[in-house]
Design a protein around this nucleic acid. Structure first.
Length: 496
RNA sequence: UCCGGCGUAGCUCAAUGGUAGAGCGGGUGACUGUUAAUCACUAGGUUGUAGGUUCGAGCCCUACCGCCGGAGCCA
């Protein structure tokens, strides 16, 4: 048995394939079967002189499974350059009225058929990139002396902020699905030095945006004897490693996804770094203001250009004779209308957007808009450190020179993909940690075990978490995070 | 929770308040190399639901339901 990926090595020789029919075209005395087998796609040519195979080929429907054999040959007319001259084809499982056609579908329809949508080349490519990236994440830590430590999914309480957790009935007690493994990892780091966890995490936030999932995967390293500058270096090296892995192993997939790889090739250490306070100054600066004004003007020109283009297309549509021309124009018009609507909405909000940057007040958390402005300014992954203590979690270590700040670091992906890493140096001093928790009104009892880490041989340490799906979305250049995970769990969607 | 957009054939979408349409997909047929093939014919509808305005509603108004994505929150 041969796979489609290997075909180029079998030119002029007979092979047998097993797969599925994803498309079919026919001339009078010839049928073209488009077969995929998980490794790639191949055009299989069945001519009328193939006898029984020709009749069988004519009867095959989209997404039926089959065995097929014949001679491999190189042909310029074949997509991919190679095709199979079929000698025989045997149906395995039939497929009647397969719902996903080779024409465009809406999001809702595709999400309801996610179990079948995965079969399309684009979705399969994304899953392969996800696999390669997850492999790279594990290898990065494995090769650097980290030990994988699995942290519990059922946990008694919130690590940072309540109200965003899913509750579960646990033998008549209320417990929660974990939103981080961090506190447990800190324990493990005191045992093993360098550790990481990799697993699903759950957030009950009522967010319906292209960046949010209710269930997503996170990889979290935790490192003993590490301080903030060490963490930033680790985060930087990690991201560079992931991008390299994608560029090395996923070129065909990225090409299929039409990803602009030059943007990824520019991802090299060191990343631009700013402190939170510098970021706020930047938001207030004339440089940024000017950039935003120019972007606004450019978008307005784009808007006018698109409007003019739309009018041209509509005029062409009105006079188009052939139905295939009309169809083609309809698709172009539809896509353009959607782009125009999105841009129009963005333009409407623009004055407020620009003013919000200018009026951003020190002490509040950076919002999505501010993140986008900053990451567009640098056009590479951006490290922002030392946020106000008030907007961050209790376990973060305050800045030794300015107690209003904490020693944390976030990494923003470029191109508007948002925060992909959040991390910090942890408070390792028992008294400081206890008083901070008391200030926050926290009940210490459930955290006694966590405080023990500070009672017995405490050391400076820290770590961070990287969101797998946001990283996949960024590296693949996807518009929406829902395509980065096989079966997304989002607000209001549970099936399939 | 708030704001905005959408809901018409299996799918993607059209339709000045005036007889509900096209393409794809399905079916039948034609075509010896197709590239989301093409061409001809054909079947397919309670326009999300319930009210209201009107001589007349897919279109206007109200409420509800569903979907989309933006804010807040976050990776």
């Amino acid at each position: 048995m041969t796979t489609i990926a290997q075909l180029s090595a079998y030119v002029g020789r007979p092979v047998a394939l097993r797969g599925w029919l994803y498309g079919k075209r026919s001339g009078g005395k010839v049928v073209f079967l488009l077969v995929r087998d998980g490794t790639g796609g191949c055009q299989c040519v069945v001519s009328a002189d193939a006898g029984a195979a020709f009749t069988a080929a004519q009867a095959l429907t989209q997404e039926s499974s089959l065995h097929i054999h014949g001679m491999v040959r190189a042909d310029e007319r074949a997509p991919g350059g190679y095709e199979l001259e079929v000698a025989g084809v045997t149906p395995v499982g039939d497929a009647v009225d397969y719902p996903i056609t080779r024409k465009p579908h809406g999001v809702d329809f595709l999400m309801n058929h996610r179990h079948l949508w995965l079969r399309t080349p684009r979705q399969a490519a994304i899953l392969r990139v996800r696999h390669v990236l997850i492999q790279a994440m594990r290898r990065f830590f494995d090769e650097r002396g980290f030990t994988l430590v699995d942290t519990p999914i059922l946990t008694p309480g919130a690590a940072e902020g309540a109200g965003t957790l899913f509750s579960v009935d646990y033998f008549e007690d209320e417990v929660y699905l974990a939103q981080t493994g961090q506190l447990y990892l800190e324990s493990a780091a005191m045992a093993l030095g360098r550790v990481y966890c990799f697993g699903p995490t759950f957030r009950a936030e009522k967010s319906k945006t292209r960046r949010h999932l209710a269930e997503f995967w996170m990889v979290e390293p935790e490192i003993a004897y590490a301080e903030l500058p060490d963490l930033v270096q680790w985060a930087e090296a990690f991201i560079v490693y992931l991008v390299e892995a994608a560029l090395t192993h996923c070129r065909p997939e990225l090409a299929l996804l039409e990803r602009d790889c030059t943007r990824l090739e520019a991802v090299k250490a060191p990343f631009p770094r700013v402190t939170y306070s510098e970021a706020v100054d930047l938001l207030h600066s004339d440089v940024i203001h000017e950039e935003l004004q120019q972007a606004w003007a450019a978008d307005r020109r784009q808007f006018e250009a698109w409007r003019a283009r739309l009018e041209t297309l509509e005029a062409e549509r009105a006079t188009a004779r052939k139905s295939w021309q009309q169809e083609k124009l309809d698709r172009a018009i539809h896509a353009l209308r959607e782009d125009i609507r999105t841009l129009e909405e963005s333009l409407r909000a623009r004055p407020h957007y620009i003013e919000a940057a200018r009026n951003f007040t020190w002490g509040t958390d950076l919002g999505g808009d501010e993140e986008t402005i900053l990451s567009r300014h640098f056009e590479r992954p951006l490290v922002i450190t030392e946020y106000p203590r008030a907007v961050k979690a209790f376990y973060m270590k305050p800045h030794p020179d300015d107690p209003r700040l904490v020693l944390n670091c976030d990494v923003l992906a470029p191109e508007g993909y948002g925060e992909i890493i959040g991390g910090s140096q942890r408070e390792e001093d028992l008294d400081a940690l206890v008083s901070r928790m008391q200030q926050e009104g926290m009940d210490l009892a459930p955290y006694e075990w966590y405080l023990d880490l500070r009672r017995y041989g405490t050391v400076p340490h820290g770590g961070f978490g990287l969101g797998v799906e946001r990283t996949v979305a960024w590296i693949c250049g996807l518009r929406h995070i829902r395509e980065t995970i096989p079966f997304p769990r989002m607000m209001g969607r549970m099936t399939p």
